[in-house]
């Protein structure tokens, strides 16, 4: 089975028609447990998320700050396995046929399962894209090859410090969307995004990269609006979303309400 849908393409087309940018929340799959995680992701959709960016818990997440590390630890201490993560996503996909679902994870989870099996399992669960945080372009070819075979879109990261050669290569190889890094460092709401200069966006346009979604340090509607004003196709917010989960673990109903209204607020900043 391969994935022939182009949910990202459809999403960007529809948003363009409505003159909106995309708001994409990130949460850790399996945080804090299977059932709550399914409810959390459904709440994000109910709040108005245009797409979902979902992490898989990993023991050694070198690109993540403390908020997302803690989310991994919560899931792993509840014995969440990769199989559970795919099952959670399958349930979300069953409820929401059209929303683009992307994975953001680390290479060892993919390599241990086998690249081909991992991507096939992702397709079967209803995943549209995979971004591997510790696979730079230089190591990406064998992942991209399997992505093409299975119909998964391999998402590439465009960091602010990249060379022109890197941007050009992203232009050739990117599919779905491009994860535009708003700043150096690791994930976290502690350090705010720096909205990219128009030169950076111009460069991305010049090299014809897939539509850029800005991430890292996005936690307020103002930052979402600024990202879209600067030319990004949308914004991704991870740590701010995960913080709501962390702060409301003892009251899941309140947590789901807060997540929903957070997403609604952030989404409303995407109207141009």
């Amino acid at each position: 089975m391969s994935n022939s849908a182009d949910r990202y393409g459809d999403m960007f087309e529809q948003l363009d028609a409505k003159n909106e940018g995309a708001f994409v929340p990130f949460v850790m799959v399996g945080d804090p447990d299977i059932q709550t995680s399914v409810n959390i992701i459904k709440a994000l959709v109910a709040g108005g998320a245009d797409a979902l960016e979902l992490g898989f818990p990993y023991s050694d997440p070198i690109a993540d700050g403390p908020t997302i590390q803690q989310a991994s630890i919560r899931a792993l201490s509840n014995k969440i396995k990769t199989d559970d993560c795919f099952e959670i996503i399958r349930q979300v996909r069953e409820a929401h046929a059209d929303i683009p679902i992307g994975l953001l994870l680390y290479s060892n989870l993919v390599l241990k399962r086998g690249i081909e099996k991992f991507y096939q399992d992702a397709v079967n669960a209803g995943v549209d894209s995979i971004l591997i945080a510790d696979v730079p372009l230089r190591e990406a070819d064998r992942f991209i090859a399997i992505a093409k075979q299975t119909g998964i879109k391999q998402i590439l990261i465009a960091p602010p410090n990249a060379s022109d050669e890197t941007f050009a290569e992203i232009g050739q190889k990117s599919q779905g969307y491009t994860y535009l890094l708003g700043r150096a460092g690791v994930t976290g709401a502690e350090t705010a995004v720096s909205i990219p200069a128009s030169e950076l966006i111009d460069k991305l346009t010049q090299y014809k990269v897939a539509p850029p979604l800005l991430g890292f340090g996005i936690s307020t509607p103002v930052q979402v609006a600024d990202a879209i004003k600067s030319g990004a196709a949308g914004a991704i917010s991870g740590s701010a979303t995960v913080n709501i989960i962390a702060e409301n673990l003892s009251q899941p109903e309140v947590m789901l309400e807060k997540l929903k209204s957070f997403v609604t607020n952030m989404k409303s900043a995407t109207y141009k």
């Binding site: 690109a63 730079p136 372009l137 230089r138 190591e139 060379s163 890094l181």
Partner: peptide
């Protein structure tokens, strides 16, 4: 691209965020 061999057979490589590649 690399000037020195980045791998020993299949082993080694640069499995780091793109952000660290220039450094």
């Amino acid at each position: 691209m690399n000037h020195l061999d980045s791998k020993f057979g299949d082993y080694g490589g640069m499995y780091v965020p793109e952000l660290l590649i220039p450094a």
